[in-house]
Simulated scan of single mutants.
Amino acid sequence: MSDQHADALEAVRNRRSHSSVTEEAPSSAELAELVAALSSVADHSGLRPWRLIELRGDDRDAIATGLAAADGGGEKGLEKYTKKARRAPLVLAIVVKPRPSGKVPVWEQEAVASGVAHLLSLLLHEAGWGVIWRTGTLTRTEPVHRAHRLAPDEYLLGWLYVGGIPEKDRKQKPRKPLRVDEVLGTLT
C-alpha cells in the first residue's frame, strides 16, 4: 500500500461530523485553496454543475430568513432559524447548477454536486476544521431558494457548517462497524 493510499484511507476513516464548532473558521483564501482541489471530482463531461455560496457574519441570516418564511414566518420562527443559521461561523451552501447535456442527466449532475459536498467536507476535516452537513424538509422550498438568490434552474442541496473543533471533540469517535457483506456483493 502506498503512503498516499494509506493517507487517503486514514482520512476517510477519521472523518466525522461536528454538530458544534467554535467561532474559528478558515479564511476565504484557505477555503479557495480547498475548493480548487475539487477539480478532481468525478464529473462526466466536465460540466461542473455546482457552485458554492460562502456565508459568514450577517450573510448567514439569509438561511434564517428563507427557512422562517418557508415554515410560516413569524418572529419566533425567525429567531429560531437565526440561532440555527449562526451555529457555525462559516456556512457553505451547496448549489446544483444543472447544465444542458444530451449525455449527462440531471440526477447525475446532482450526484456530482453531492460528491463535491462530501469531498469538501473531507478536505476541511483534514485541514483541521469541524464540519457537519445539514439539510431538512425546507431546503428546496421557494422561500429558501429566493433567500439564497438562486437562478430559476438552480436548487439547493444543503449546507456545510464549518468552524473550529472544540477540544472535547478532538478524540476519535467510535464507529458502528460496517458489515461489508451487506453492502458489497456480486451478481452471482
Rank of each mutant, 00 (worst) to 15 (best):
S2D: 14
D3Y: 02
D3T: 05
Q4K: 06
A6C: 02
A8I: 14
A8P: 03
L9N: 05
A11I: 09
A11L: 12
A11T: 13
A11H: 07
A11V: 09
V12K: 00
R15P: 14
R16C: 11
S17D: 08
S17I: 03
H18I: 09
S19H: 12
V21R: 12
V21M: 14
T22A: 05
E23N: 15
E23H: 14
E24Y: 02
A25L: 11
S27T: 15
A29Q: 12
A32V: 02
E33N: 02
E33V: 09
L34K: 05
A37F: 03
L38G: 10
S39W: 03
S40T: 11
V41H: 09
A42C: 02
D43I: 01
G46L: 06
L47A: 08
L52R: 00
L55G: 11
G57R: 10
G57M: 08
D61H: 13
A62S: 15
I63S: 01
I63H: 02
I63T: 04
I63D: 11
A64M: 04
A68V: 03
A68C: 03
A69C: 05
D71M: 06
G72D: 00
E75A: 01
E75D: 11
E75C: 00
K80T: 13
Y81R: 10
K84D: 04
K84A: 09
A85P: 05
A85T: 01
R86C: 12
R86S: 14
L90E: 09
L92S: 10
V96T: 12
V96K: 10
V96Q: 11
R99D: 04
P100S: 13
S101Y: 04
K103G: 12
K103L: 13
V104E: 07
V104P: 10
E108R: 14
A111C: 08
V112H: 09
S114Y: 00
S114G: 15
S114L: 07
V116H: 01
A117N: 04
H118V: 00
H118G: 00
L120C: 12
S121D: 12
L122E: 02
L123S: 08
L123T: 02
E126I: 01
E126H: 08
G128Y: 00
W129F: 13
W129D: 03
G130D: 08
I132T: 14
I132V: 15
G136T: 07
G136M: 07
L138V: 08
R140G: 15
E142P: 08
P143W: 06
H145C: 12
R146T: 11
A147D: 06
A147K: 06
A147L: 06
H148S: 05
R149A: 15
R149Y: 03
L150C: 10
D153E: 15
L156A: 10
L157H: 07
W159S: 05
L160T: 00
L160I: 03
V162C: 06
I165P: 02
P166D: 10
K168M: 07
R170Q: 15
K173I: 11
P174F: 00
P174S: 07
P174R: 14
V180R: 01
D181Y: 01
V183S: 09
G185M: 05
G185V: 13
G185L: 08
T188S: 14
T188R: 11
T188H: 10
